[in-house]
Amino acid sequence: MSIMEYNGGSVIAMVGKDCVAIASDLRLGVQSLSISSNFQKIFPVTDRVFVGLPGLASDVTTLHEQFRYRVNMYTIKEEREIEPETFAQLVSSTLYERRFGPYFIEPVIAGMQKTPSGSLKPFIAATDLIGCLNFAKDFVVAGTASSKLFGVAEGLWEPDLEAEDLFETISQTLLNAVDRDAFSGWGAVVHLMCFFEGSTHPLAQPRRSSTNRIASPVAP
């Protein structure tokens, strides 16, 4: 029995054309016994950054609180919101602080990164439980269904997916992967961030985050 698989749960993030998506299941269990079908593992960091925290449920809450505190301190000191890539570095250093007694979490970060020209480009990253960063161009996966997610994502993902197609791709990838994993499932949630080129104020209203519950948890 691995402590990383004690509570179950999975997260995936994918890049599209001027958009990015992050999705997770909603199960919380104690090994094979399911306790809750509404345990959120993905949290908003700013208006255009999300972090997914699959792993030990106790550390999901602890790290969420820790990141909230550190991002708030950053926002106050810098007088601006944190960029996705900067947040990924913050996640990495927070985890490496506990190198020899780690938090049992493998975070996934998704966001829209500001470019020098003022537009936004999709950004995803993932780390292992001690903060080793993996910046990917296509998709990142983590959690108990990660091996299945890799397989399905490898087959379904393609470059430059439009928002609607990205939503469908990430949804199908997640649902089909967690269906083959006993420790993940019981409902899912998808967060989608897009950049609209035609916006009159590219930085004032450049994006829209939408959240979709793609499968309801099993009704009690």
């Binding site: 919380l28 809750s36 106790s58 602890t62 009690p220």
Partner: peptide, 28 residues
Amino acid sequence: WVDYLGTLVEVPFAAHGYGSYFALSLLD
């Protein structure tokens, strides 16, 4: 529902101990 690891989750019904194996399915 809170366990010794510090797991916290809000639920409509809950149980701890051996009783949970019977009660949870019944409450579903």
